[in-house]
Amino acid sequence: MNKYGQAAIKAVDLIESKHANTPEAAWEMATIEIFGEGTSGQSKGCPRSTFLALCETGKVKGIKSGVYISAKENKEYAVKALKLLVDNPSLSNDKKTLWNETKGGIKKSHNSQMDVVLALWNEGFIII
Rank of each mutant, 00 (worst) to 15 (best):
L84Q: 09
A26V: 04
T97C: 02
K64Y: 09
L98N: 10
T31S: 15
H110Q: 13
I15Q: 07
K61A: 13
K10Q: 13
K72G: 08
K10L: 14
Y68T: 10
E56W: 05
E16P: 00
M29W: 03
N111D: 14
K103V: 10
R48V: 02
P47L: 02
E76Q: 14
L91N: 03
P47F: 04
K3H: 12
P89D: 05
K107C: 00
C46N: 10
M29R: 12
G105H: 09
E16T: 12
K3R: 15
L118D: 06
V117Y: 04
G66L: 13
L120K: 12
G104F: 03
N100F: 05
H19S: 15
G62C: 05
A78G: 01
V79K: 15
F125Y: 14
M1G: 15
W121G: 08
F125R: 15
E24G: 10
N88C: 04
A81G: 10
E56R: 08
S109Y: 08
K59C: 11
V86S: 08
L84P: 00
L82F: 07
Q6D: 07
G38Y: 12
L52G: 01
E101C: 01
W121M: 09
L52E: 02
H110V: 00
S70N: 08
G104I: 04
F125L: 15
W99D: 03
E73G: 05
G105I: 04
E24C: 04
G124P: 07
K59F: 08
A25C: 01
L14Q: 02
L85M: 07
E28P: 00
A53T: 12
A25F: 01
G124Q: 08
Q42C: 11
T50R: 08
K83P: 00
G41E: 10
A20I: 00
P89W: 04
E76L: 09
A25P: 00
K72E: 09
Y4F: 15
V79S: 14
N100I: 06
A71M: 05
N111M: 08
F51W: 08
E37Y: 06
D87H: 06
I126L: 03
L14C: 01
T97Y: 00
E37A: 13
E37S: 06
H19K: 15
F51V: 11
K80N: 10
G58M: 11
E24N: 14
H19C: 01
V60E: 11
C55R: 06
D115V: 07
N122C: 04
I69N: 07
A53Q: 02
A78D: 02
Y68L: 11
G104R: 05
Q6N: 04
P23Q: 11
V60C: 13
G36T: 11
S49F: 09
S49I: 00
C46K: 03
E56L: 06
K108I: 13
T39N: 12
T57S: 15
A119D: 10
E16H: 10
K108R: 14
S49Q: 12
L52Y: 03
A53G: 15
P23V: 05
S17E: 12
L98S: 12
T57A: 14
N21Y: 07
H110C: 05
E33Y: 08
G36F: 02
E37K: 15
D94V: 06
N93T: 12
M1L: 11
K3T: 14
M29V: 02
C55M: 09
G36E: 13
F35V: 02
K3L: 15
M29C: 00
T97Q: 07
T102D: 03
E16F: 06
E73T: 13
S109N: 14
W99L: 03
I128N: 15
